[in-house]
Amino acid sequence: MIDKFVATPAAALADVPDGATILLGGFGTAGLPEELTDALIARGAKGLTIVNNNAGNGEGGLAALIAAKCVKKIICSFPRQADSWHFDKAYRSGELELELVPQGTLAERIRAAGAGIGAFYTPTAFGTKLAEGKETRRIGDRDYVLEFPIHADYALIKAERGDRWGNLTYRMTARNFGPIMAMAARCTIAQVNETVELGQIDPEAVVTPGIFVKRVVKVSRAARKAA
């Protein structure tokens, strides 16, 4: 019997090695798998490359991961925020490397990794500093920049509902990077608010089919609020 349910975030992350590349879901705090991130800090993995839209907010989640000095490099589109002080400090001190990627290019590089695409041309960033040193090509009447996929060892994402085959649905804008990150990692771990029996997710409404998901760990919203 296939059973992708794992009892705890710690158990779900037990094999994450130092130096892993990790796609971390979320846009700001929406969709950020906070309990999985906490478990990653507790595990003490070091030298991580983290891919996220941002670079942490306030004290929890990705900000805490940076503060705990687990992160060597961040690939993101929007690190600077009013409450990104942990990133700001680590970046200014030179201990944290930043690869800044336009948001749509970040999404497409992740999607390309999951979809088996070798590289793609995008019009975004042509003629700007973020395309410096990159191969470009004129196709028709437009100029494009060559971009490569972002493959990862793990994806840590947050979904709303999951079954033991790993089928997932999401909640509103917390969906953001979840579905494409799930496709792009060798091992995708989803934190879900609710687990359900097979068949209880309408097949027409499955957003991430279980083929992209290796482990599902339940962290209910009630438990989150209590904590």
Binding site: S77, F78, P79, R80, Q81, S84, F87, D88, Y91, R92, L100, V101, P102, Q103, G104, T105, P123, T124, A125, F126, T128, K129, L130
Partner: peptide, 21 residues
Amino acid sequence: WHTGAPDAIPAVGGAMDLAVG
């Protein structure tokens, strides 16, 4: 997206995609 100041932390978000798209 960026003032180009050496100590500024750059952030681009979706601005470059919107500008071309």
